[in-house]
Nucleic acid binder design. Structure first.
Lengths: 213, 213
DNA sequence: GTCTATAGCAGGATAGAC
DNA sequence: GTCTATCCTGCTATAGAC
């Protein structure tokens, strides 16, 4: 069994991580076989065990080597997109846009949020990693950014629940794309994604302001 | 292979449906084996194939025989709980309460919403059933109920997206219980569920009003 | 490092006794 | 209807050649 850090130097391992991520996101851990992964990565069946020890380890490494770095890029993008002294509207809109219509390919975003959603619903070992390295710091950061715009008169718990509510929408409108398409009759093209950013922004803006109206 | 209608007359089939539902909700279709189901239902391995033909069929029947009827009871509960001329606040609060703290045991509610969430994220044959017999009619009903309170000045699409946003929160706060507990530091006792109903109500109320502020 | 071959097991499904 | 016994397939994981 080979060793690995934050990045897998080996191109085969890289391909495995890439294909594994897409498949795990689409079908879930149990829904994917090592055969399917190695086949799509155009390498041998034994490669998973050689490079990652076993299937479960590969799953965790997908998070460590691909998911976490992408989440950090996303967070960074959010930070750079934000104007110097952001209004509440700026904050919410930038947040929604970063996750729904940001710079990364739609395929990646889908994959990213599907994996996240799966872990939210049924946390595994990978969830610890995600919670510690991404969620907690990001929420801390968000809380600090939002606090001034909200007049500072919200208790910490309310603020957290409000932020979670915003995330609920962002995740849902990605996670349940097929259902949303079916109900609204619209496909996830650029126009609809822009519409969703507007929806989430408007809805959340009012919701967030609730405490001080 | 036996035949079956909306209700399975056979007590063994009933037990199978019950245990299967709980397991499918908790671990997903692929994560559960027929052996595990029959074992929990205290019946023979062959029972699934005898009563339902195969595993996949059992899954769909879980929706037909248990999920859909429960959803209808839930919808009925929502309707009866609603005061005669409900305000927007009444509507949202009753809706959130029906799904988060209604009369059914918490175990059932969890199971119900987990199954729903799984289908939202990765629709199968069962999704057609759910969409046609539950979602579409319920959303039609909701749209009609909400329309007058919203002054009728929202386009249909906005209304639908707003309703979906409310559902996003309801689903998320059930689906991601573990993550929410971890972030907020609170367990899902009665007090916290009441808090969440308040959160969702307040947040949505403002969000829904956004269009006419 | 990559491959083939295969062990070893768990899965869904079925046949046939009772 | 229920059970046992069993088939067969597909899975993960490993051993060992190259």
């Amino acid at each position: 069994m080979a060793h690995f850090g934050t990045e897998a130097a080996d191109p085969t391992a890289e391909r495995l991580l890439k294909e594994a991520e897409a498949l795990f996101a689409k079908k879930g851990y149990e829904g994917v076989s090592v055969r399917e992964i190695t086949s799509k990565a155009r390498c041998n069946l034994a490669a998973v065990n050689y490079h990652f020890g076993n299937k479960k380890n590969l799953y965790v490494e997908v998070f460590r080597c691909r998911w976490v770095p992408r989440a950090q890029r996303l967070q960074q993008y959010f930070n750079t997109e934000l104007p110097p002294e952001p209004s509440l509207h700026d904050l919410v809109e930038t947040l929604a846009r970063a996750f729904l219509a940001g710079p990364m390919p739609d395929e990646d975003r889908c994959c990213h949020l599907q994996l996240m959603s799966r872990e939210l619903g049924q946390p595994t070992e990978a969830f610890d990693l995600v919670a510690d390295t991404v969620m907690r710091p990001f929420f801390e950061d968000l809380a600090q950014r939002f606090a001034p715009s909200l007049g500072g008169n919200q208790e910490k718990e309310s603020l957290v629940l409000n932020l979670l509510s915003v995330f609920a929408m962002v995740l849902y409108f990605n996670f349940a794309r097929e259902a949303v398409s079916r109900i609204t009759g619209r496909s996830y093209d650029e126009a609809f994604k822009t519409r969703l950013v507007k929806q989430i922004t408007a809805f959340s803006l009012q919701g967030l302001r609730g405490g001080r109206s």
